[in-house]
């Protein structure tokens, strides 16, 4: 079986926050937000609370959480590797980690040519 290169990673600090939230809210997912204020950052929701759109792109899974974004936004992430990190702070969105006094954040780099040649295919919609 082919070993795919992943588009996603997660830091240990972010893993610990995911564990804490999962214990309280059950299965989780991420959806990358756009737009003003707290946008351009990943939102963390309980699976089933945020409705994944039929065209949303699933970039993969990190620490048991699928990571989605709108297809329009994905155009600009196609060549990027994304790491989910967490920093102290206070966002104003509905993301679940905010009451803990922390905020998820993404760090990005360009995918290498070798990675691009062997990327895990993205999924579409909630089924993937």
């Amino acid at each position: 079986m082919t070993e795919f290169c992943e588009r996603l990673a997660i830091t240990d600090a972010a893993r610990a926050v995911v564990d804490q939230l999962r214990a309280r809210h059950g299965a989780l997912l991420f959806h990358q937000s756009g737009g003003c204020c707290d946008g351009s950052a990943p939102m963390c929701f309980a699976v089933g609370d945020f409705r994944i759109g039929s065209r949303d792109v699933c970039l993969g899974e990190v620490h048991g959480c699928k990571f989605y974004m709108s297809p329009e936004q994905f155009q600009y992430y196609e060549n990027c590797h994304t790491t989910i990190d967490v920093v102290p702070g206070r966002g104003a969105s509905f993301s679940l980690e905010i009451p803990l006094g922390v905020r998820f954040l993404i760090r990005s780099r360009l995918l290498t040519e070798a990675e691009q040649a062997n990327l895990r295919p993205v999924g579409v919609g909630a089924e993937d």
Partner: peptide, 9 residues
């Protein structure tokens, strides 16, 4: 007023 994902929610 805010970002798109919460707007969708």
């Amino acid at each position: 007023t805010g970002e798109t994902t919460t707007g969708r929610l």
